[in-house]
Design a protein around this nucleic acid. Structure first.
Length: 256
DNA sequence: TCATCCCTGTGG
DNA sequence: CCACAGGGATGA
């Protein structure tokens, strides 16, 4: 669920709650996360809360606690005693607690000294590297953009949206994009991410994503999840295909 | 580069 | 009941 905008919003809303504060205790409610409490340094004062691609880093002395929300995870700030259903990890702070809630249990937590060697450049940063990088791959542009080693932060929704705005067919080999198309793609990636940030992210029909404040995001996808519905630009029915094992939505008329 | 798997919930 | 889901690691 959560892609760059949702993770960024989570970090921004959580940062003032935890920055400079000490983690007083950690509770792992899922056996898969049982390794976390013992590996945290003590004292564990949070020197920084950062996003790297879709990862969330709690920067602690000499180490970082790195969380990844995967498909169904979210972080919440709570000052109440009751824990929501599917709470997997609890970080106890003096004035409240950070809850890692994750129904599908696909999310991860690890304590590491170094992080991020495999991650590509952040999708919100300078994208001039794309011109060169795209030349080297014959993978479909949709699949290439989803690979976090190439560019970090995009997921299935915003890749679909960016390719639609750029007017590029998701099947196109990455190396086949012309200079002008790469320029459109750079602009489109930044545009959708910024729109999604302003809208506080995307909450689909299942309501899975919510901000740490418990609110829904308002981003309305133009093509993602809209199979058979009219393209917002030309009215042609949006098509769904499978690419790289994932549902892929696009307008066959606007995207060439 | 692909299929498979990790998990659970939900909607058709 | 089954298909599908916003992500990603793994092994063939």
């Amino acid at each position: 669920m959560p892609e760059l905008p949702e993770v960024e919003i989570t970090v921004q809303l959580l940062r003032p709650k935890v920055l400079g504060e000490e983690i007083l205790g950690v509770l792992a409610l899922d056996p898969k996360l049982a390794h976390v409490p013992a590996r945290l340094p003590r004292p564990a004062r949070v020197a920084g809360l950062q996003r790297r691609g879709k990862h969330i880093l709690f920067e602690l002395p000499r180490k970082s606690l790195v969380l990844h929300l995967r498909m169904s995870g979210r972080l919440a700030w709570s000052e109440e005693r009751d824990l929501p259903k599917h709470t997997r990890l609890v970080l106890e702070f003096p004035r409240g607690r950070v809850l890692f809630v994750d129904p599908r249990r696909l999310g991860t937590a690890e304590v590491v000294e170094e992080f991020g060697k495999e991650l590509g450049p952040d999708a919100l940063g300078d994208l001039s590297f794309l011109t060169e990088a795209l030349r080297g791959s014959s993978a479909p542009i949709k699949v290439w953009l989803l690979d976090q080693r190439n560019i970090a932060g995009l997921g299935n929704i915003y890749v679909a949206e960016a390719l639609f705005l750029a007017g590029i067919d998701p099947h196109r080999p990455a190396s086949s994009l012309k200079g002008k198309e790469v320029e459109r793609l750079k602009g489109a990636i930044h545009q959708v991410l910024k729109e999604a940030l302003s809208a506080m992210g995307t909450t689909l029909a299942d309501g899975a994503y919510q901000t740490p404040a418990g609110e829904a995001g308002d981003y309305a996808p133009r093509v993602y999840g809209r199979e058979g519905l009219p393209c917002p630009r030309c009215g042609t029915a949006i098509v769904r295909v499978e690419l790289g094992g994932r549902g892929t939505y696009f307008c066959p008329r606007c995207q060439k």
